[in-house]
Write a protein that binds this DNA or RNA. Sequence first.
DNA 1: AAGGCAGTTGCGAATGGATTGCAACAAGCT
DNA 2: AGCTTGTTGCAATCCATTCGCAACTGCCTT
Lengths: 151, 151
Amino acid sequence: MGVPLGADPPRHDISTVDDVLVLVRESGGRVTISRRLLLEAIFDDPGHHSAEDLAAIVQAKAPDVHLSTIYRNLEELERLGVVVHSHLGHGPATYHLAASAHCHFVCEHCGAAVKAPDELFVNLAARAQKEFGFTIDPHHFSIFGRCRNCQ
Amino acid sequence: MGVPLGADPPRHDISTVDDVLVLVRESGGRVTISRRLLLEAIFDDPGHHSAEDLAAIVQAKAPDVHLSTIYRNLEELERLGVVVHSHLGHGPATYHLAASAHCHFVCEHCGAAVKAPDELFVNLAARAQKEFGFTIDPHHFSIFGRCRNCQ
DNA sequence: AAGGCAGTTGCGAATGGATTGCAACAAGCT
DNA sequence: AGCTTGTTGCAATCCATTCGCAACTGCCTT
């Protein structure tokens, strides 16, 4: 899904693991250990994580949580609007809190990912909307190119 | 690689299959049937093609050209700057002539890809350059979002 | 025209990321 | 405690792409 520029904020505010678990319950889901551990991993470090990274973190505490469980839980958390994933180029998708979604410039040479403020995209967003009726979601895929050091 | 906004045009001009084959020879490569058929497929329809699509077209004339040969040839043609690939979302990469590279808006709901004129990106490109020293290549990855019909 | 170096090919197997079917399991309702 | 239904572990599978390797062939040289 993703969070288009200027989307509404979620109805509840979600700033802790327990807030999310309440949401999970409300939507008919159950609170399980893997679910909680996954959320803790995501809240502990709000940066980018591949599913595999997250699995490793969770497995440090509960060794036999399976990678497929991580994927399934991430999928559900996306449905709930708690996390989003984005594609930082080739390689695995990265997941992070929806609240901290942002755009990226990714260097096609060295792979470095630079955070790009949303503000850079408002002009493009407005024109895409006006001229094409298209609402951009610049968070989901990053913008490729060359970073300062790799020109 | 890709073609950053405002990149230099190739030294020879390349407007026919034979032009490319000359280039192939000059770079120490050989002219083979699969190479020629692949190029014909790409020149015949300058739209987007997945490797698999191209394989099917080539195989109509030379049934045992292998998919891996298509990939290898596409790779070489990219090295030569004749074709580029871009990622139109999830799913396979699409290949097309470097000369006809352009940006895309891809609808995350229905998958529709809309051509986006480069001109829309000049403002973003300038700011990315000035503020981050980053040269964007908006052709390589498309911009995700919602199209008019899928708001 | 024949020979030979080096680029190419077909094939199958392997890779990496992600998804799925299924039977066993467990959260939390009553 | 019992039951319903959501969840999990596991293995198998999928898809796009890449790789190793022996056989092959373009094309330069003689």
